[in-house]
């Protein structure tokens, strides 16, 4: 009897997030007849795609034991550069503008990576600096003005459908799948866990820890740029204030998903669920007509609850 209840408990602790997600969806299905409709599910996925992509990159960084506070600013900067290339009477081809946006994201990620991996600046400080600088660059580049009337070819990223799935959702799920495979199947993935688990012993084992950490920030920057492109296409205009405070939801998604802030434990499956939980809460509480202030209280409670669960899991181990 005792054994069985312990079994149930460890099962709950291991899959707690998935349980919580299913419970939340069940609750919303019964309390609102529109929740479980295909249109609404696509809405949730579309609304989650931006935070979800940020959370994917954030997961890699947090797995190495770091953090990236600059994702929202990098998103804004990349979106602005891309927007500036697809506006006006002679817009550049969307492919070029997208590459430029990704390049901006990747380059800013490189700076973060260098500061953290090579110059040993604490990730919190290095990326806090980038949060400020990248936002400032965005305002300088745009003069604080939004860039409207983007080309239809580009806007299609936000509106279009691929294999029956909205393009933002398609991109989000592809990013998830790729990172899942990278973490589970590749040498680089295993090294990320090794570095996050114990950097010293990873170095002793011959892993170039600097390179592992550097690339985690580059990938995170690249994905922030990607999220910036999608946000720009969805709002049909590049906004200089786009992405302010987005790092909070991205970190929340990773933490709710059970990835440990001290590194080495967790993965993108949890972060996917974490991002979906945040998306479902926002959507569900809108459908139920719940006050937005209360919405923030609930989100906060879930974040803390998830970490509490995580701490107890570590204790029992």
């Amino acid at each position: 009897m005792v054994e069985r209840s312990q079994g149930v408990r460890s099962l709950f602790q291991r899959y707690g997030i998935a349980f919580a997600f299913v419970l939340l969806c069940l609750f919303l299905t019964f309390s609102n007849k529109y929740f479980l409709t295909s249109g609404n599910i696509l809405n949730v996925l579309r609304q989650t795609s931006i935070n979800g992509i940020l959370a994917m990159g954030m997961t890699l960084v947090i797995l190495t034991g770091g953090i990236d506070l600059s994702v929202g600013s990098v998103l804004g900067c990349a979106g602005m550069v891309t927007g500036s290339l697809v506006t006006g009477e002679h817009p550049y081809p969307a492919a070029l503008a997208i590459s430029a946006g990704l390049l901006v994201g990747g380059l800013l990620g490189c700076v973060n990576g260098l500061l953290v991996a090579k110059y040993k600046i604490p990730p919190f400080v290095a990326t806090l600096g980038m949060l400020s600088s990248a936002r400032g660059l965005t305002y300088m580049y745009s003069n604080g003005q939004p860039i409207p009337s983007l080309s239809d070819e580009f806007l299609n990223i936000g509106k279009g459908v691929l294999f029956g799935v909205p393009i933002p959702v398609f991109i989000f799920l592809s990013v998830f799948l790729i990172l899942y495979l990278v973490l589970a199947r590749t040498v680089y993935g295993r090294r990320i866990y090794a570095v996050g688990g114990n950097e010293k012993s990873a170095r002793t084992a011959g892993i170039s820890t600097k390179a592992v950490i550097f690339f985690a920030y580059v990938i995170c920057g690249l994905l922030s740029g990607l999220a910036g492109l999608i946000l720009t296409a969805r709002t049909s205009s590049a906004l200089p204030q786009a992405g302010i405070a987005y790092e909070l939801d991205a970190i929340a998604a990773v933490v709710i998903g059970g990835t440990s802030l001290s590194g080495g434990v967790g993965g993108v499956v949890g972060s996917l669920l974490g991002a979906l939980i945040i998306g479902v809460i926002n959507n569900g509480l809108d459908l139920l007509g719940v006050d937005s202030s209360f919405q923030q209280v609930i989100k906060g409670a879930i974040i803390v609850g998830a970490v509490l669960l995580d701490a107890r899991r570590h204790d029992s181990n």
Binding site: T37, N40, N43, R234, T235, D291
Partner: peptide, 25 residues
């Protein structure tokens, strides 16, 4: 039908409206 804040933000207005279109088709 509904009255809620979207904090002056276009992205928030977009999501909120999508959800309202769902709950009040």
């Amino acid at each position: 039908l509904e009255m809620k804040t979207a904090n002056w933000s276009r992205a928030e207005g977009l999501s909120l409206m999508e959800n309202w279109l769902t709950s009040h088709p």
